[in-house]
Nucleic acid binder design. Structure first.
Lengths: 343, 343
DNA sequence: TATCCGGCTGTTAGCGCTAGCATTATCATG
DNA sequence: CATGATAATGCTAGCGCTAACAGCCGGATA
């Protein structure tokens, strides 16, 4: 009968380490978790044995026994649009020191997928969940509510959170941008954006935007939607379409910076006077814009801060009211002309 | 004594569902996992009860009991550079139907962090691991080797894999690009790239590049490095520096497309004749380039395909030799002039 | 009628670990 | 020297689930 330690294919357990170091499993467990009193000599012996064997603790068993899982589920719609990676950065930063670890799930803006992702995550019994947006299926909401863990919905605060919410008001952001555009004297304004029925935040921005236009007696003179493909290229194409269809348009409001950047490059290519003849604005405040020939007007979505605040709530470092509202700053860049009469 | 089901704060277990539906826990388990024979009536009853209670299975316990975990660890250096999200897409696509689920860990190009991430992941006993790159600490390699699960190292094949490797030869990619540049008649060539000691793939490309230059009796006339910040902006800045320091440079080879794009925008701003007076090339083949005023020369890194192939190996759908080499295609775009004498 | 078979359900025994004690060794105190 | 305090270690009993097998039942077979 070969001893387990002599079989390199055997999966190591605490028992192996305990046998190798001549102490009980419990003591090994204590050493490996840095919990409870263990004499320095014993500690050293155990650590030595664990290292020599190449033992990696089994968190599955540990989590089951201790009823504690150091995981935080993060459910977001996409990784490829530059906005969520930055949210993740904020989350990781804060979670770093807490022993908590983020686990990401991606929904591709599909409610069904979101439901599945949430179900999967909850089945690992995480210590908390961070979910993008306030719009979820009834089943998703019910699961999250029942889970008995802190839930933070992020990015948006225009709605009723399940537990906590950290974000900005996209409706207000749209309104603000519209007001700035109107104040700058633009009147024939078009919207260019994603054709995603489930991008609720883009939708709310547009609603706020149109609301403010209406208040000024205006309405959109054109609108164009896209889905899929290279955003920069799509921005060019849509801009071409709109400029062709509505030649006298004097402002292009994009639902995100990436297509806005494409539009800007197109306008510059065509030799249009920006921001004199035509103005442009996007949304998000992505780093990319810094490298453009001209800085696109945009609004920062407070992504890093949202990630941080959400993680703080999960980590119990902050115990705020249900909603935490952040306030994006409008950055006029070089693509909105200065307000007439005060330059 | 209140029954558990009457306490909304009680965490649900199989037992609750079993009591609610009047069958044994085992049968509930079978229904919920779709395994084994269960009569349609019983199945319906159980499903009904589970739904009514809002029961979410506990995978921790399930995994411990069955010794199977449907997780695949994916360890990558970064999420913010457009390349890994696409790899993830490939992985997810293939894993979709297999019941396996990817879990991402990010190392920020730090070997220490990589070691920690791998350790954490292995402690969840995943069914397989996909790790970017071939360079790891001894401890990391040992852990992976010991884990007794399929390991796939991706992106790079210039080296010795622990188990499997799927990727391209970055050395060869660098060489190929150099050859194309030389063939096009450029002679005063500069390199602009990341100052990351641990971006081994960028390093290998540069090595291959210089090797091919040397073979043609050439060497770099200038080089410039950066770290951090907005890549597009950095591309502009570095390009300005190089053009200023080495005015007669006639080709700029960038370590990635993003800084290459910045450089391209800068050159166009300055009214330089691209690709006549000066040529440019990047690396990766990111979508972004499609929207630029001129298409940057680049080499596709086969990201999607790498993700797919790696996932197939993990899922056991493919059982290839140790290494799977993919071959990137050089896309000359509009920033390398046509080879003299054959236009 | 005895036997077997396949469909369905239940029972038993852990998976590898940790909470919560119980136990022992060590030592200062009165 | 008994006593109690403290530090170090071990034991027991699960955590919630599933593999493996055992049992039961009705019907077909010989």
């Amino acid at each position: 009968m070969t001893k387990p330690s002599s079989d390199p294919r055997h999966t190591l357990t605490l028992r192996d380490v305990s046998e190798a170091s001549g102490v009980s499993e419990m003591t090994v467990s204590r050493v490996l978790r840095n919990r409870g009193d263990v004499s320095p000599q014993t500690r050293e012996k155990v650590l030595e044995a664990a290292r020599a064997l190449g033992y990696v603790p089994n968190k599955i068993a540990g989590a089951l026994a201790s009823q504690r899982v150091n995981l935080v589920g993060v459910v977001i719609p996409s990784l490829s649009n530059m906005v969520f990676p930055e949210v993740m950065t904020g989350i990781s930063e804060v979670l770093e020191g807490t022993g908590l670890q983020p686990v990401v799930g991606v929904t591709n803006y599909l409610p069904d997928r979101e439901e599945k992702v949430i179900y999967e995550m909850l089945s690992w019994r995480p210590s908390g969940m961070i979910v993008a947006g306030l719009e979820h299926s009834d089943a998703s909401r019910a699961m999250l509510r029942r889970a008995g863990i802190p839930i933070v919905e992020i990015m948006d605060i225009d709605g009723d959170p399940i537990d906590h919410a950290v974000g900005i008001s996209h409706r207000r952001a749209g309104r603000q941008m519209a007001e700035a555009i109107i104040a700058a004297g633009y009147r024939r304004i078009a919207f260019l954006g994603t054709q995603m029925p489930n991008d609720h935040r883009a939708r709310k921005r547009l609603e706020g935007f149109e609301e403010a236009l209406a208040k000024a007696g205006l309405q959109l003179v054109d609108r164009e939607f896209y889905s899929g493909g290279s955003a920069l290229l799509k921005g060019r194409e849509m801009t071409a379409v709109v400029l062709n269809r509505t030649p006298d348009v004097d402002f292009l409001y994009y639902s995100n910076d990436m297509i806005g950047a494409g539009g800007l490059l197109y306008c510059l290519d065509k030799g249009l006077d920006v921001p004199g003849r035509i103005g442009l604005a996007g949304f998000n405040g992505v780093e990319l814009l810094d490298g453009l020939p001209r800085k696109l007007a945009t609004m920062d979505a407070c992504r890093l801060e949202i990630g941080r605040k959400a993680a703080e709530i999960i980590a119990g470092k902050a115990s705020p009211g249900a909603k935490v509202e952040l306030f994006p700053k409008l950055e006029p860049g070089d693509t909105i002309r200065p307000v007439s009469g005060q330059h």
